Amino acid sequence: MSERDVSRVVANAVIEAVLDTPGVAFLRPGLADLLRSSALLRRGLPSTPAGSAGVQVRREKPGGDWSVEVYVVLHRGRRTLDVTREVRAAAAEAVGLVTGEPATGEPGTPRITVTVTGLV
Rank of each mutant, 00 (worst) to 15 (best):
A32E: 13
T84I: 11
V87Q: 04
F26S: 13
S67R: 14
V18A: 00
V55A: 04
T99C: 07
E101V: 15
Q56N: 11
P29W: 06
V55K: 03
D20Y: 03
L27P: 02
P46E: 12
D65A: 15
S52F: 10
P62T: 05
A91M: 04
S38Y: 15
Y71R: 15
G77P: 02
R79H: 14
E69P: 01
P102S: 10
G100D: 04
R36H: 15
E101H: 10
V24N: 01
E101T: 14
A17K: 00
V70S: 05
A89H: 05
V9Q: 08
V95Y: 03
V70C: 04
A17W: 02
G30Q: 02
A39L: 15
S67A: 14
V57P: 00
D82W: 06
T99D: 05
A13T: 00
A39K: 15
E16I: 03
R78G: 03
A91S: 04
A17H: 02
E93D: 12
S47P: 07
V14H: 00
T84V: 13
L45I: 11
V70M: 03
A92S: 08
R42Y: 10
R28V: 15
E60R: 12
P102M: 06
A13H: 00
W66T: 02
V95D: 09
S52A: 09
H75M: 08
P22C: 01
I15S: 00
R43F: 14
T80M: 12
T80K: 12
R28S: 14
K61W: 08
V87K: 01
R8M: 04
D20N: 10
R28N: 07
D33H: 06
D82S: 13
L45T: 13
D65C: 09
G64A: 11
A13E: 00
